[in-house]
Design a protein around this nucleic acid. Structure first.
Lengths: 235, 235
DNA sequence: CGTAACCTTGATTAAGATCAATTCTCGTGG
DNA sequence: CCACGAGAATTGATCTTAATCAAGGTTACG
């Protein structure tokens, strides 16, 4: 596979040509379509993944079928690294499972699988990669902390407002520079599952915020009409 | 300070005498009483901590005063390492904040502060510590995943049952070997804040499980009367 | 023993989930 | 180009869980 892609991935950015080539040799590219399962949390652990294109959701399902999305992974980013570092030194690798389910949310979602065993060797020889991984984990931990804080200490309205603001700050819609708007890249069903609610409640919340002239929802586009109020409502 | 204590801490277990001495020189021991604040999430980041004795809660507070506990840290364990690895390479250390609040839950809670700057240097020279930290982060991530799963996909009864089972598996009460029981080391208020509910609801849930002859609650001691049912209820 | 912190119990309320019925949107094939 | 159908989204009515409010009881500890 092409090493140029891997170089864009944060944790590999410090590798030299030699290491890069080595890495390319062991990893495998896979392509998925919208709705395809990348792995279930019941499957034995093979290694971790890097997204190249598309979008991946990491999620859990309750016994009665409700779903909660833990992460939405945009390229180029890694996921499912956690089991790499659990029970280090033990040999019962076969018993490791993926920590959650992963599904492609867009057609042509391309991911790279980095096999656990080979990667661990590389890791031990390179402090730089370790520190980059630590930094990735730190970001992940910060995100989960924030996620829990939102879920436990804020109501649905606050969470929706907070989501819009975060999206706005991260990926300002480039097609409408001047306008304060965001473009949803997931279905409202998935958004609800990410915000810890259901689609009906999400729909009602959007409507409420619209009635209060804070936002305007047109399909997948959300226009922020009153930034100050939106920030106020999210607190 | 005594290096024997630090050796018991997982991430330091691989250090040699020299490194250990170096570490002891830079770190500071602090003792707290029950209810004392170790840090607020508004404070500038100084470094991370290790618990030696006692118990520490890591928590967040909502605008209207509700509290949610993210972690309960038993010795010997680290906490507040996340900011160490964020924005690596940037120099604006003064602007880092702690990710949450930390409070001692017992008298004579002793912790060691490892200053960020000096520790980072040690880290870069030692792959083993890096990997140990990665493993610690992995455990933390797994815990937060599980925590979110519980909070979003299970009702209070399931969460309470799950908590009892986890406690039973981790710290089987040594004073009553034969009996299937656990001893709470936190107040019911704190337990409620950890399980994402309030003390009244927790009290009612305990009563319900008691009425169903699944458990028996005597103050801080919880006796498991029907393990099979308890497991069933937790799912 | 007295007081404060902790816990339990009951009555009421509110947020959001569930159930059910439309409506909207968009891709596909006639 | 239009009609069709399926999936996505909206809306309304109702129900459930757990939070809130309020009062009283228990425990621990000086």
């Amino acid at each position: 596979m092409d090493s140029a892609i891997l170089k864009k991935v944060h944790i590999f950015s410090g590798l030299d040509e030699e290491e890069m080539e080595q890495l390319c040799k062991i990893c495998r590219v896979k392509t998925f379509n919208k709705g395809d399962i990348i792995f279930f949390d019941t499957e034995p652990y093979l290694g971790f993944y890097i997204t190249i294109t598309g979008l991946v959701k990491i999620y859990k399902i309750s016994k009665d079928g409700r779903e909660h999305i833990l992460h939405l992974i945009n390229p180029p980013n890694t996921f499912a690294e956690v089991p790499l570092f659990e029970n280090l030194g033990e040999i019962h690798e076969e018993s490791y499972r993926y920590p959650a389910n992963a599904m492609a949310l867009e057609d042509e979602t391309r991911v790279v699988l980095i096999p656990a065993r080979q990667f661990t060797e590389l890791l031990e020889s390179d402090t730089k990669i370790c520190i980059k991984m630590l930094s990735g984990f730190a970001r992940r931990l910060r995100h989960l902390n924030h996620h829990i804080e939102e879920l436990t200490l804020k109501d649905v309205t606050k969470r929706v407002a907070g989501f819009i603001l975060t999206e706005y700050n991260n990926n300002r819609d480039p097609k409408s520079e001047a306008k304060q708007s965001i473009k949803l890249n997931i279905s409202k069903n998935d958004l609800a599952a990410y915000l810890g609610t259901i689609i009906e409640t999400l729909s009602r919340t959007f409507k409420k915020l619209q009635d209060e002239d804070i936002i305007e929802v047109e399909g997948k586009k959300i226009l922020i009409k009153d930034m100050k109020k939106l920030k106020e409502v999210s607190k």
